[in-house]
C-alpha cells in the first residue's frame, strides 16, 4: 500500500513539473489536495487545451467518488461526529475497501487508520522524491513517462473495472470521451463522460 502511493506520488510530481508547474508549487499542491486522480484530471484537460475552470470541474467530478466512499465508510464507524468526520476526510479507495471488511465498528476504525498511515507515509515520501526527480529528469517522453500517467489511473480503477457494471461504465465513459474529443471544447468530453455511469445502469434496469 505504501509502495503504491509512493509510486503514485512520484509519478504525479514528475507529470506536474513536466507540464510547467514549479517544483515547490507542485509539492504544495499535492500535499494539500492529496488526490492524484483529481490532479491528473486537471492536467489532462489543461493539456488538451481546456480552460482552468473546465479542468477544475473535471477534477471535482473525479473526486466525487470520495463522497461515495464515505457513504459506505461512515455508518460503519463508531458513533461521534468528530471522529467520523476526521475519518471521512481521509477516505480513499484502498483504506475504505480494507476497513469495511472488519466486522466491528472499532475494528473498522482501527484498520482504516492503519491503512491510512501506510498510504500517507508512501504519498508524502513519494511526492518529495518525485519533486526531486521531476527537476532533474530530462525528456519525459523519451522515458515513456507520458504512458505512465494513464497506466497509473488504470491501476487505480482496476478493481472497479473488473466488475461487470464497472467495465460497462468504463467502456461507455471512454467511448464518450473518444467520440466527443474532436468536436467539443476541451474538458467537456471528460465532464460528459459521467453519463457512462448512467448507461451502465440503464440496460440492467430494463431487464429486471
Amino acid at each position: 500500500m505504501a509502495l503504491t502511493f509512493f509510486s503514485l506520488g512520484v509519478t504525479l510530481q514528475v507529470a506536474l513539473i513536466d507540464a510547467g508547474t514549479s517544483a515547490g508549487r507542485a509539492l504544495a499542491a499535492s500535499a494539500v489536495i492529496f488526490s492524484a486522480t483529481s490532479q491528473f484530471a486537471w492536467l489532462a484537460v489543461r493539456e488538451g487545451g481546456g480552460s482552468d475552470w473546465a479542468a477544475v470541474v473535471a477534477g471535482w467530478v473525479v473526486a466525487s467518488r470520495y463522497g461515495i466512499l464515505t457513504t459506505s465508510l461512515v455508518p460503519r464507524l463508531p458513533a461521534g461526529v468528530a471522529r467520523r468526520a476526521l475519518a471521512a476526510l481521509n477516505a480513499f479507495d484502498p483504506n475504505v475497501a480494507i476497513a469495511i471488511q472488519q466486522p466491528t465498528a472499532s475494528g473498522v476504525e482501527r484498520e482504516f487508520w492503519r491503512t491510512t498511515a501506510a498510504m500517507m507515509l508512501g504519498w508524502f515520501s513519494g511526492i518529495t522524491v518525485g519533486t526531486v526527480v521531476g527537476n532533474v529528469v530530462g525528456d519525459t517522453a523519451q522515458l515513456g513517462l507520458d504512458a505512465v500517467f494513464p497506466a497509473a489511473l488504470l491501476a487505480i480503477i482496476g478493481n472497479l473495472l473488473r466488475t461487470r457494471d464497472g467495465f460497462v461504465a468504463g467502456l461507455a465513459g471512454g467511448l464518450i470521451c473518444l467520440g466527443l474529443l474532436p468536436f467539443v471544447p476541451a474538458g467537456l468530453p471528460i465532464i460528459l463522460s459521467v453519463f457512462g455511469a448512467v448507461l451502465a445502469v440503464a440496460p440492467v434496469r430494463g431487464r429486471s
Partner: peptide
C-alpha cells in the same frame, strides 16, 4: 447509489483516453 458507484469508472476512463490517444483536441 449503484450509478454513483460507477461514476469513477466512467470518468477516470475518460481521463485515461485523453492522456493515451489524444494530443490536444486531435486523436
Amino acid at each position: 447509489t449503484r450509478m454513483a458507484g460507477l461514476v469513477p469508472a466512467a470518468v477516470v476512463m475518460a481521463v485515461i483516453v485523453q492522456l493515451t490517444v489524444a494530443q490536444g483536441r486531435t486523436i
